[in-house]
Amino acid sequence: MPEGDILLQDRCEGGILRLTLNDAARRNALSEAMLAKLGAAIESAGADPSLRVIVLAANGPAYCAGHDLKEMTAGRAAPDGGRAYFASVMERCAGVMQGIAFCPKPVIAEVTGVATAAGCQLVASCDLAIAADTARFSTPGVHIGLFCSTPMVALSRNVAAKHAMEMLLTGDMTSAARAAEIGLINRSVPEDALQDAVMEMARKIASKSSMTLATGKRAFHAQREMSLPDAYAYASNVMVENMLARDAEEGIGAFVEKRAPEWSDA
């Protein structure tokens, strides 16, 4: 498969961008090429004012199998045993995951098949996730002597500590129903209804002011790392600045006047 085809991009009506992992032969692994393309696509979409929501889907039986272990194994041939190469790959992967978190556009994972290791990390890094009821999730590094430490970062910020540790320590597969119970995904739906469910959510979110969405997403991630007093002080300031924005004035006015708002995204 030509390298240029491993990530598909489709612009949909309403400012929705569908990014589709399309390297089924490698189970959509986060190879060097995939990380580069996915990172660039997220960065570009974040800066594009015509786009409002990003959907991250995948073709094939696996959503994403995590890092490309064949590439990782080849890296051991370096004189340092692969240390510099492994560090570079982890840095690039962390950059992509943070790029999703810091992207001003909401990112929705549309999950089919299995999402394992860094693939599970990818799902956890997205703002929202809807999965087919046949999807499964795991952080299986312990099976091969490699604790899923970087997937742990996103996983532990989405599910309670004991649920995260159970996945990390056992490496067991987690069903879509269980993933919804513990907060890894929002919900699961029949596979034939998955794309419709995701696009319905994407359209609903895309109908809002992009300024408001970007403000809220940025504040959500920032306040999570603060103490309670600092979080309230920070969020209060965000609310003041938001209230002074044009779209807040328009939205409140439209609500009072019982009409649909006309967003300027400012």
Rank of each mutant, 00 (worst) to 15 (best):
E43Q: 14
D196W: 11
A248K: 01
A47H: 12
E110H: 10
M90C: 09
E225V: 13
L128C: 11
E91G: 02
A193I: 00
K208E: 14
A233H: 12
T112L: 04
A129T: 00
M201F: 12
R178Q: 07
Q121M: 11
E13K: 11
G14C: 00
S125L: 01
F147R: 14
C12G: 09
A177I: 01
I130E: 00
Q9V: 07
P2C: 02
K37Q: 15
L155H: 03
A24S: 13
V114Q: 13
N186Y: 14
A132C: 08
A33V: 02
C12K: 15
E3P: 01
T139K: 09
K37G: 10
G113F: 02
A179E: 06
G183A: 00
D127Q: 03
V240G: 06
E250Y: 08
R136T: 08
V142Q: 06
K258L: 14
I42M: 15
N22G: 04
G145P: 07
A231E: 04
V256P: 07
D247F: 05
L168Y: 06
A129P: 06
V238K: 09
A65Y: 07
I252W: 13
M1V: 08
M199C: 04
V107M: 05
S210L: 07
R26D: 12
A176D: 07
P79A: 01
A74D: 01
A24D: 10
S207G: 14
P229C: 10
M165D: 10
L244Q: 10
A219H: 00
K70Q: 15
D68N: 13
S138G: 12
C64N: 11
G75N: 03
A74H: 05
D23R: 11
H143S: 12
T116S: 10
P151F: 08
S149C: 12
A29R: 12
I182P: 05
I6N: 06
M243R: 12
T134S: 13
H67M: 10
A235K: 05
N242R: 07
